[in-house]
Design a protein around this nucleic acid. Structure first.
Length: 203
DNA sequence: TACTAGATCGGCT
DNA sequence: GCCGATCTAGTAG
């Protein structure tokens, strides 16, 4: 697959409802093209976060400086810093004021794999296991793609960070489970991943 | 393999 | 001041 020949998703892809966008992001290709380095990977695992009903969401308690991009219109990047060490990235969805976003939890690397290995390990791969460990978690994806606070609010219809069109993943190839690493609203089945793909986070 | 702890700091109660 | 949409290294079994 030649990623440079694929089409960018338009703004209207993102302004639809949270769960629709979350599921349809599976199989699409996340691209970062800055500083002369091209990174890309197939989105294999996501989680949905809602504003109104979802206590686990950063947007649940209303607008703050950190989450304000979540309350804007869909199609922007929400990057946050957590546990004093990691960044995680989200795709903002829906219309103005909804406070919804989709956390990208794992991707399958396509372009820039050598850079990802260097960003993650600072050395060569040691074994097969490290190949999958490269991007199978939200903190790992950001580390591999070198995504940080400077990418907060990035416009996904721009030319630095964007997502490429790909055929929709069939419903019977999508697995829904509880979300990972949260303590509130734990019963929602809002984690989605591509069945049988090896680039999936633990549990 | 399974569990525990430590890193490390920004956001918000 | 507390705790988190995480990850890794270390220890025990």
């Amino acid at each position: 697959m030649i990623t440079s020949e694929l089409q960018k998703l338009p703004g209207k892809f993102y302004t639809r409802s949270l769960i629709t966008v979350a599921k349809e992001l599976l199989g699409k290709i996340l691209v970062k093209n800055t500083d002369g380095i091209l990174y890309s990977g197939i989105i294999t695992e996501v989680e949905a976060y809602d504003g109104l009903t979802d206590e686990a969401s950063h947007s649940f308690r209303g607008v703050t400086p950190r989450n304000k991009i979540m309350f804007g219109v869909g199609g922007y990047f929400y990057v946050y810093f957590t546990y004093g060490t990691h960044f995680c990235c989200n795709v903002v969805t829906g219309t103005e004021g909804t406070g919804t976003a989709v956390l990208i939890r794992a991707v399958q690397p396509l372009d820039g794999i050598e850079h990802m290995i260097s960003n993650r390990y600072g050395r060569e791969l040691k074994n097969e296991k490290e190949k999958y460990n490269l991007t199978n978690g939200p903190g790992k994806v950001c580390k591999a793609f070198s995504i940080g606070r400077e990418h907060y609010g990035e416009d996904l219809t721009g030319n630095k960070i964007y997502i490429l069109k790909r055929p929709r993943v069939r419903e019977d190839k999508i697995v829904s489970t509880r979300r990972i690493g949260i303590t509130r609203s734990v019963d929602l089945l809002w984690r989605f991943y591509i069945k049988d793909n090896p680039y999936i986070s633990g549990k």
